[in-house]
Nucleic acid binder design. Structure first.
Lengths: 184, 184
DNA sequence: TAAAAAGTAGACCGACTGGTCTCCTTTTAT
DNA sequence: ATAAAAGGAGACCAGTCGGTCTACTTTTTA
């Protein structure tokens, strides 16, 4: 693994667990054994590393989610599979996502205001909603695909937040039941 | 207003907007004009102030929410009024909650791990779910009040997260529509 | 009115932050 | 083989962090 990737992986793990402001650059260095000079050779600043971490997590999460959804079929089947995937995530059955600690983008977004980080988080959320919507167009429904996709997103966000903050690890199952009713 | 209250108000405003770790004690002092000694006369540490702020916000939020729900009637009517209240909050029509910046407890929870703060956030969420549940017991339904209350909580959390992170300010309206279907 | 409590201003402290720099070694590519 | 790039170890920097302390003033209370 290249040094930048090594740093991004370690940084994500620490940021995800303890928060971004709570983790100093020196902690990441100590964790990886990488020299400070090397870090600043590849990243202009901590901020740049944070952004790289967000982009990395976006890719990992989207790749995982899309593959899980596509494997389940098309249209509504794919959308409902989203909640099965979430359920696996909450119960730590998805290694690539690391032990469940809520949504990294929601958490990162909470630590900044009027910042590039916020844009990256918003874009990540919009990407997911767009992907859901793409699976819904064409399906017969009196409700528009856009409206349905946004509703599904509400269920998805709610399940994640409820599972993490309130410790309700079965939130995805309830969210799925509501999604079934919505898409029927 | 007493000094402790003054500090708590200003601290909440700053923490809510910029994050807890991002706001130093000196910023709060400068904002309020209070002397550092006075702050440490009333609070043992920044941590103690943070906890006081969480308790304060819990009270303000719960008072507002319960009064909005009770004013709408009983049972399902109260529960559905929750989403109307959220819609007002998202659109900055609720002065006591300050301009909408997402859920303070979700944000605070994101900045700590294995900490008193996390317990306070979890308890806040559980209090709300319990209150919802209390409005649902007795209502005829094949689903238990506990299950319904948790589902409503998923919708509520989802609406807040979606409104804040994705900028979908009408998320409460969609959540309400799903709540109507759920409680029917 | 006098003692006690609460408040102010700000110097000061050690610890830590993100970031720079020097010196030296290892790896890579031509 | 050799030059360039990447990496390591860590001293060092200015700034900021939470928190303490002194000296003095204001407010409250009995």
């Amino acid at each position: 693994m290249t040094k930048p990737d090594l740093l991004i992986h370690a940084a994500f793990k620490l940021f995800y667990q303890h928060g971004i402001h709570a983790v100093g650059i020196n902690t990441i260095l100590a964790e990886t054994g990488v020299a400070k000079k090397t870090l600043y050779h590849h990243f202009a600043s901590k901020e740049a590393l944070v952004e790289a971490v967000l982009i990395y997590r976006d890719q990992v999460f989207m790749d995982w989610l899309t593959s899980r959804m596509m494997a389940a079929g098309e249209g509504k089947m794919a959308v409902l599979a989203l909640f099965d995937a979430l359920d696996d995530w909450f119960h730590d059955r998805v290694e690539v996502l690391l032990p469940f600690k809520g949504c990294f983008f929601v958490k990162a977004n909470a630590e900044f205001s009027d910042h590039t980080v916020n844009d990256l988080c918003q874009r990540h959320k919009q990407n997911i909603t767009s992907f859901i919507q793409a699976n819904l167009v064409g399906d017969s429904s009196e409700l528009s695909a856009a409206y349905l996709a946004q509703s599904i997103s509400v269920l998805k966000e709610g399940a994640i937040a409820q599972a993490y903050v309130a410790g309700d690890l079965d939130a995805a199952k309830r969210a799925k039941a509501m999604a079934v009713a919505l898409l029927k």
